[in-house]
Amino acid sequence: MKKILVADDEMSIRLLYSEELKEEGYEVYQAANGREALEVVDKIPLDLVILDIKMPEMDGIEALRQIKEKRPDLPVILSTAYGEYKQDFATWASDEYLVKSSDLEDLKAVVKRYLKE
């Protein structure tokens, strides 16, 4: 079973994403900020990470940088309320950049594309 980490400081978002992705047959881990996300990356052989950008303690951009240092092969999807970070080239290291939407079909389609057998 493919392992996905959802890192977002909003508990409701984590819950929503987890429920939806579990339904799709993935094993979902959660983190409330960048630092927690890195801990999970260290412990668990993840297949994909969904990262929020604005988070306390460590933001998604820093977490992205460190994840890509540790595991360049691990796909990271940035999922954020802010469109403008797309122009910040620190975000270009991510594999996808999605603006959050209540309709998760796009997100699920992207995840599926990366985790195809």
């Binding site: 909003e10 409701s12 978002i13 309320a81 209540s102």
Partner: peptide, 13 residues
């Protein structure tokens, strides 16, 4: 935007 995503997402669920 964040609460909206939650509201909308859960409504869909």
């Amino acid at each position: 935007r964040n609460p909206l995503v939650s509201i909308g997402g859960f409504a869909r669920r």
